[in-house]
Amino acid sequence: MAGYFELFWSFFKIGCFTLGGGFAMIPLMEKELVQQKQWLSKEEFLDLLSLSQAMPGVFAVNMATSIGYRLRGKTGAVMSVLGNILMPILTILALALCFRYFRDNAVVESIFKGIRPCVVALIAAPVFTMAKNAGLNWRNCWIPLLAAALIWLLGVSPVLIIIIAGLGGFLYGRFINKKEAAA
């Protein structure tokens, strides 16, 4: 059985070695928790993975919460989450504290002038790479277009749009598309 410290340590390692966001953690978690420690079966892991995707919040943290909770209850969940985020938080904080001294440096500013359009492109690209998995097609593409226009042009809150979209999905399945929903 997984001890609290063991849980912490496993998620600590996973937190330290993932660059590029939560989904990059999946293979590492699978290797560590399913194959090496054998704390979870492959099926359980996939169940917790889809649960973590469905829940709001940060995907990797949700994985740590659900796996920690499944293995050692509430304390296990706390230990796993702490392990997972400790190193990332300390690293980014150290960077934040150092960057204060370099922000006005001419060399650093010239580097960031190159980086900024790159970052905007990195945010724009997932709109298209995620579209297929999200099930985007010609019939529903008005939804993200309308959402983007409302936020960008009218300053509507994204949170409000999330609430309306969730409600809309529920009502659509309930009243308009009963057959497809039942199938």
Binding site: M130, A134, L136, A148, I161, G166, G169, A181
Partner: peptide, 15 residues
């Protein structure tokens, strides 16, 4: 149904 609606809408948020 809720999640498939959210997945599509979120694309607009990111855009």
């Amino acid at each position: 149904n809720i999640f498939s609606s959210l997945r599509i809408t979120v694309l607009g948020l990111i855009a």
